[in-house]
């Protein structure tokens, strides 16, 4: 965790560009939160059934740990919209981010419960990438 599920219209993102966009998403999340890169997951689903709202080309269902500030979530949203607009044919205004929050103690990854944001344990966890 975090887990970003990107639902995209077929014409806005070439399959060959998914990896690059996933790096962008990872960069944004890690810049804003300090989380280790290896914990950031991005899953793509192509909206072949045309279920996205008419005014949306890319929808992220972002499941992140509880405890992020309002400012952090706003920054995540803005930067993800901009990064996605640069990498796809969607404009930033047509990129939606729905943030869902999960308590850290309800997720195990890397063999351990995730640390609470701001806890002493989180500092050691953040160093996992370095």
């Amino acid at each position: 965790m975090p887990f970003y599920h990107a639902i995209v219209r077929p014409e806005v993102l070439a399959p060959a560009d998914r990896e690059a966009l996933s790096k962008d998403v990872t960069n944004v999340h890690c810049d804003v939160t300090g989380a280790p890169r290896t914990f950031v997951h991005v899953l793509y689903t192509v909206d072949d059934a045309n279920r996205l709202p008419d005014d949306i080309d890319v929808l992220y269902r972002a499941n992140i740990r509880s405890g992020r500030t309002t400012e952090q979530k706003a920054e995540l949203t803005t930067r993800l919209q901009n990064a996605t607009a640069e990498r796809t044919s969607a404009s930033a205004s047509r990129v939606a981010i729905h943030i869902e929050e999960t308590e850290a103690s309800f997720v195990m990854e890397g063999g351990s419960l995730l640390p609470e944001p701001g806890s002493p344990e989180e500092e050691a966890w953040k160093a996992l990438d370095t």
Partner: peptide, 10 residues
């Protein structure tokens, strides 16, 4: 090609 972890194929 549908899922990536840390920016690489998952």
């Amino acid at each position: 090609g549908q899922m990536f972890t840390g920016g690489s194929p998952s």
